[in-house]
Simulated assay, not measured.
Amino acid sequence: MARPDRRHLLGGLAGAAALALGGCSRIADRREERIESSTPPVGRIMRINGRNVHVWVGGQGPDLVLIHGGASNLRDLVDVLAPRLTDRYRVIAFDRPGHGYTDRASASYEGVNNTRGESPAQQATLLRAAARAMGVDRPIVLGHSVGASVALAWAMKSQDAAAALVLLSGAVMPYDGELPLYYQISATELGNKRAVPLITALTPPRYVEIALARAFAPQSPPQSFLDHSGVDLALRQQTIRAGTQQVRDLPGYLAEMSKRYASLYLPVEIVYGDRDQILPPELQSVPLARAIPNARLTRLRGVGHMPHYAETARVVDAIDRAALRAGVK
């Protein structure tokens, strides 16, 4: 039997690869269906400027907006904070664009051909429009991790956009250094089309557990978080693309935003754990407190990147201080 020439061999390998990737895409789609079936929306879906925005609302009182961090969704903040706040605040929690059940900020960011991440300002614009549609005026805005940059962008829109800010373990200052390879996968169309479906299809539960352990360290993820946070939503293809693109592009946006921090005069409460391995506080929360004139810094000893779980009462105290300082309580 004649041996195949190089052209036929390469063609056969390419065809086999395409079949394998097609199989992974089908597996990824089925996994997404199972994830969404087991983790449906907990709030309502609003239609804002042609975009779906998922919002959870509870309680009465001054408006308090919650904005979650990376690879997460609104359940993260609602489950732990809302029970302690809805007796005296109207708590409004959003899924950020591309996360949970909120669409990307505009149609131009959708699909495998897009390699750009929305800026904090673009994310804040969509969420602020949804808040306005609910009658929200000058809320206290809380942001965790990447969500802290969105909270800052919300307040920087105008002097009366927010009454106060509460920033938890925030990604808020420009930083150097190359991000891990994971955040580069959606920098190219090839990565979007090929690598993302593979991640959705093949990422084992053990990897998710390891990532959560690192995020919570030195604490451990509580069982309530594992049971109710809907962390598997972050394994969907759209969310992987949104999350990696937004984080990859964030340093450039923060470099521009940080030039205006000194112009923020609203009350700002900054809370961080001094054992945070994700966003070192000496590079993020601490210099932010020096940059904003009316900032108050709270250090939580022995706490990692998830202060709202490790020291929930201290975070609630910071929210109440922000409300008092802003004169809305």
Score class of each variant (00 low, 15 high):
Q238F: 13
Q122M: 15
M156E: 00
A289M: 02
L9S: 02
V57E: 09
T86K: 08
Y272R: 07
G327M: 09
G170S: 14
V196M: 00
H54T: 04
G170H: 12
L165I: 09
A323M: 06
E269C: 01
Q159H: 12
T203C: 03
L190A: 00
E282W: 15
R275F: 11
L77T: 12
R128C: 14
V316T: 14
G61T: 10
Y109H: 01
K259V: 10
R241H: 15
A213Y: 14
S224G: 05
P281A: 08
M306C: 09
M156R: 09
A255D: 01
Y309Q: 04
H305Q: 02
R248M: 11
P218S: 06
S158A: 06
D95K: 15
A255G: 03
Q60E: 15
A291W: 07
S158Y: 10
A17F: 05
K157F: 14
L266D: 10
D87S: 11
R44S: 13
A129C: 10
L264D: 04
G170R: 07
D227Q: 08
D87P: 05
R7Y: 06
L126N: 07
S106F: 12
L77Q: 10
L167M: 10
S220W: 11
L13I: 05
A155D: 03
H308R: 07
E110T: 03
M257V: 13
L266C: 01
Q184G: 00
T115M: 08
E32C: 06
S258V: 09
D29Q: 04
H99R: 11
E32Q: 04
G143A: 14
R236L: 10
D232W: 13
S72H: 12
I48R: 03
P281T: 08
E189G: 04
F94E: 02
Q159K: 15
V172I: 10
Y183M: 09
E282T: 11
Y309T: 06
E118Q: 15
R314L: 02
D29P: 02
G177H: 12
L198M: 03
H308M: 13
K157S: 02
A289N: 05
P204V: 01
T115C: 04
T86E: 13
S149H: 13
L9R: 02
S106Q: 04
R3Y: 08
E32H: 00
F216V: 06
Q223V: 05
S37L: 10
G50N: 00
L226A: 03
I278T: 11
A121D: 01
L167I: 13
N49V: 15
V150P: 06
Y265R: 13
D274V: 01
P287M: 00
G58P: 12
V91A: 08
A201C: 01
A82K: 15
L66I: 13
M156V: 06
T39Q: 14
L226D: 13
L179C: 07
A129E: 05
R260C: 06
V247N: 07
M46F: 15
D103F: 15
N294E: 09
S263W: 10
P139V: 11
E269Y: 12
V172K: 05
Q122P: 07
D95N: 14
K259W: 08
L9K: 05
G22L: 03
N294D: 08
N113R: 13
P222R: 00
A151H: 12
G230A: 11
D137W: 15
W56I: 09
V315S: 09
G23L: 02
R26M: 06
H68Q: 11
R321P: 00
P267G: 04
L179D: 03
C24Y: 04
H308T: 10
K329L: 10
